[in-house]
Design a protein around this nucleic acid. Structure first.
Lengths: 341, 341
DNA sequence: GCTGTTTAGTAAAACGTTTTACTAAACCGT
DNA sequence: ACGGTTTAGTAAAACGTTTTACTAAACAGC
């Protein structure tokens, strides 16, 4: 294309300067005008492979999540895409399936493709790989939804501890005193912190803890359902359940429907993470909702910021955003409460 | 990297042949072995920008849908990603927002990025742009979810007409005789054909038609709800509703919940497109489900096939897959049926 | 009118591949 | 032992940019 542009009798260098807006102090107004008009006329667009080859930058960012068809992740993805696009970046999504090998393969693929940054929700057992990626391979990486204490990195997460506290407080204020927690056996920070937040609040109110942990891969399965079934049978006294993830809650709801357990009379329910089915369910289910737009904005703006200031890089971008307890029918008080002025 | 490889004392050309598996008939076993071992040792991977620059191919495919956070599209995306990855391609997703301008911008961006193919659900009023993209710009394009009669193109779609027929038959066999259709005012082929299928079956059974069409952008809004409210009020005789899309059905369900309409006693419901909320709803909602896996497979395999056989290109890849009526509680018969041996 | 500096612009190398056209050596048949 | 063919390999151009280092012309100061 530059060759064609050279039909103007102007050097390729000059064209390049003009295209890249580096021309202000070097090139005369008239030449700039002439070139810009011509570019406009023929609709020239630089070849991005060549740019990428030359500069080593591809103007693309990869967003790796556990499962891109999860509504939470796809909602984030969509909002980031919008902002990235306006900044001349595009976003490539992919699913790790929470599998370490696969994640490594994907990272290797995208490194070869010269992506400028990784926004990633690392799978289980990925701590050393992640550290390596950041500190040995010197990639720009933004960690999403979880973080690691053992080394510094950029991240954007939810205030999971506080979120769980809000849920327990919600139960407590609606009159529940036997509050259960159903979680997942995992070392991932959100799962750990949601549990810790629960324990902390339970302790503060001086209540007994009731806990069930499923295995990660049995959440959506019959095995998960029967674990919950047994848990309910073994703990008939509980009057409320906090589910640590939305998939967990959905499995729980299946069990309750099957057992004809009444919500909120028999059991009050709060789930982490909003999902359209919760609002539409009968009764509507209360949730600790993540601030999707804000998360998406922080993620992409933070990443772009890091990319822009790549010289210094002495600081880390870290952000924890609060979740919001959305009270719905599933949390309606059923006992009389002590009057509240 | 090739320079480094040249430390073996072997020409860059030879390395390239070996890397690209073009070496079989040209280069001696020993040299191949030596080079492959060295590559393995140092972990060499070709720079894809350079490859892309040289060959004009990027090994990436863009998947443009109305809204990537729609569970239907994101499920398709996820399955395609898997297959594409195994074939050395990666997929870039983006959302058109059903907006023509935005779609054109995105297409322009991705053309510059040298994507090898577009898999696209074109927005409203995109017919000429699409035709142009295929016939003037000679891009490889696979159209998804809709098609155009006026020119030949590759597509993968659902059998929408037959799907609507199955729904009407389902209602009929469950004893309903006043079957309504709630659709969207649109020229997009699925919406048109679902409606035509409905009319066709209604006609075959000699029943009256009850129809409501919302505007595309009011589906998820209060305006949509009140349109449905009025429709129900104006047509008290109807005993069943076929919703042309899942979002439409969700809006409808909100109205019914608010009006305390009993499903399936007062109104039987079938919606197009599966969605987790339908199965979990009380009562569970019957649907015409799209065969997600098959659609994803046909889409990506079809696209890869076209890409592989780019020389000929004399044929078009066209596929219409049947939907399946999944019968749930919302379709339970309530009247006595004439006995059925 | 000479030197030094700014202005406006350009030549050419480099990024890392692929691919065409070439060659030197070995082999083959007579 | 000669020309012809195969074998095993290579040199160099090309893909379309960016960027460094350069220059010719104009100008300024004295």
């Amino acid at each position: 294309m530059k060759d064609i542009s050279k039909e103007l009798g102007i050097s390729i260098t000059t064209i390049s300067f003009i295209v890249n807006k580096k021309a202000e102090n070097k090139i005369s107004k008239e030449v700039i005008k002439k070139v810009e008009d011509y570019i406009e006329k023929v609709g020239y667009k630089p070849n991005s492979s060549a740019q990428s080859l030359r500069t080593g930058k591809s103007k693309s960012i990869v967003f790796m999540v556990e499962d891109i068809s999860d509504p939470f992740f796809s909602a984030i993805a969509k909002q980031m895409e919008e902002i990235a696009f306006r900044n001349g970046y595009n976003i490539i999504y992919c699913s790790t399936e929470n599998d370490r090998e696969r994640t490594l393969e994907l990272i290797s693929l995208f490194k070869d493709r010269q992506v400028d940054a990784f926004i990633i929700t690392p799978p289980e057992n990925f701590e050393k790989d992640l550290k390596n990626l950041i500190y040995e391979e010197h990639q720009t990486v933004m960690v999403f939804d979880r973080y690691f204490k053992n080394f510094k990195h950029n991240y954007v997460i939810l205030e999971n501890f506080e979120g769980a506290q809000k849920a327990v407080t919600g139960f407590y204020e609606s009159g529940r005193r036997n509050i259960a927690f159903i979680g997942i056996h995992s070392e991932l920070s959100p799962l750990v912190e949601r549990h810790e937040g629960y324990l902390n609040s339970i302790g503060a109110y001086n209540l007994a803890a009731y806990e069930l942990f499923l295995k990660f891969n049995e959440v959506k399965t019959p095995a998960g359902m029967s674990a919950i079934r047994n848990f309910l049978k073994g703990n008939p006294g509980i009057d409320s359940i906090l589910f640590a993830t939305n998939n967990l809650a959905i499995t729980g709801l299946r069990v309750m429907r099957e057992k004809k357990i009444k919500i909120p009379e028999d059991l009050a329910i709060i789930s982490f993470d909003e999902r359209d089915v919760f609002e539409l369910y009968s009764p509507p289910i209360s949730v600790i909702a993540q601030p999707i737009s804000e998360l998406a904005k922080e993620l992409i703006n933070g990443t772009l910021e890091i990319l822009a200031s790549k010289k210094e890089k002495k600081y880390f971008f870290t952000k924890a955003l609060p979740g919001e307890l959305i009270v719905r029918e599933s949390l309606r008080p059923v006992k009389k409460l002590s009057s509240n002025p």
